[in-house]
Amino acid sequence: MMIYLDNAATTFPKPQNVVKSVVEAIKIYGGNPGRSGHSLSMRTSEQIFHVREAVGEFFGVSPERVVFTSNCSHALNMAIKGVMASGGHIITSTLEHNSVMRPLFAMKRKGIIDYDCAMVYEGDLEATLKSFASLIRPNTKAIVCTHASNVTGLILPVKELGELCRQAGLTFIVDGAQSAGVLPVNLQEMKIDIFCTAGHKGLYGTTGTGLMLLGSDLEMDTIMEGGTGSASSLPQQPDFLPDRFESGTINTVGILSVGAGLHYVSGIGISRIYEHEFGLCRYFYEQAASIPQIKTYHYYFEKGRFAPIVLFNVGNMPSFDVVAALNARGICVRGGLHCAPSSHRTLNTEQGGAVRVSPSAFNTKRDMMNLLRELKQIAKYSDKT
């Protein structure tokens, strides 16, 4: 039987209520929301609005500030390119996913913006904050950073960075791909202007889903325009939310799955989910220390400092070989650079990457015990290579 431990990429399996929501979306809510006056369209629109309300309540924003996207990368592109359209300087961190780094690189290469990367110091919050603050220039417009690294799980001081942005008059954009549904997030309390996340990870929705949540009033350009079902007589994109950022037919099936996933997460409670998942990671981290060939990439592994992710390598084996060996034994993990080469540069693992383990609410201690048992066998083989 397969053991799935690649939940930082996408959660699997999905809760039964999510599966049910997908079937209902196809069989019952098949109208185009917001596009027609017939009853099927209106029933579908009502269901979409219920999800908007639930998401808004969960993250501390009003429903109209919930923008549905196709994934977290889509949301981050809208946020970064929308805020920085007229140019200026933006600060990011050394731990970012390519969903942040590639839009920044593309805009810099075109001569639109400039950016700097602040160093993140594991275990030293003050040093990290000073690193960000030291890079602020007169033309700095924003800070964009991950809430929790998708490589090591290290949690950044988002609340303190939000306060720094408010004091400096900067827009604060947060990549919450690894935190939504696992760590507490309230945009108002954390002073986050734009929170971008995936619907298919910790929120347990289907793939092809994402969110851009707006915590404050912002001057933002659009990166695409089109039909919204509103103000259709005008040639320009509507200036009101969420229509301004939702062009084209939205993903009804995916959105309803996110609503069901959010209901599942809320029913358990994110604190319980985090305790469970981090506990599994902590167990693996501690037990792996007894296997000489395994190297983990954490100076410490404290609850509240890391999202439930563990990164490791086995001897001199390339990470993809470890992944392949585990896959042959029915265990799914991820190797390589995890779309975050800048993070791997800080760990000196850029050459061959590393292996990532990321459990979900459905994993058990037995899954971790089986993983450790197989790694002991793989580690013996690594001594002979």
Rank of each mutant, 00 (worst) to 15 (best):
S360P: 02
G60Y: 10
Q16A: 15
M1W: 02
I26R: 15
P318L: 01
F312Q: 08
T146Y: 08
Q236F: 13
I309Y: 02
S62L: 09
Y297I: 02
K376I: 11
S360Q: 11
G215E: 01
G352C: 04
C281F: 11
M224E: 13
S230P: 05
Q351M: 12
Y381K: 13
E53N: 04
S266V: 08
M84H: 02
S257E: 12
I273P: 07
M369P: 06
P238R: 14
T364Q: 02
R329Y: 12
G56C: 05
T206A: 11
R102A: 15
P138S: 15
V322I: 08
Y115G: 01
Y204L: 06
L234D: 14
Q237W: 01
F49C: 06
A328I: 05
L76A: 10
A361T: 07
I28L: 02
C145L: 11
D321R: 09
A75M: 06
G269K: 02
D243L: 11
P157I: 13
Q16H: 10
F312M: 12
G123D: 06
A177N: 08
V19I: 09
S247T: 12
Y297F: 15
M119F: 04
Q351A: 13
C117V: 10
V333R: 04
R43Y: 08
Q351D: 14
N32L: 15
I26M: 07
Y264P: 05
I268W: 00
A325Q: 09
V61F: 07
E246I: 06
T346D: 11
V253F: 06
S342W: 11
N139M: 01
G169H: 00
M84C: 09
S134K: 03
Y115L: 00
Q287H: 09
A127R: 15
L337W: 14
G176D: 10
G34Y: 14
L211F: 13
Y29L: 00
A354I: 06
T171Y: 01
E219T: 12
H200P: 06
G248A: 09
M84D: 04
I28W: 01
A324Y: 11
I48R: 03
L375W: 08
G210S: 03
I112H: 01
L311V: 07
H147V: 05
E350N: 11
E286R: 10
R329F: 13
F245Y: 15
I309S: 12
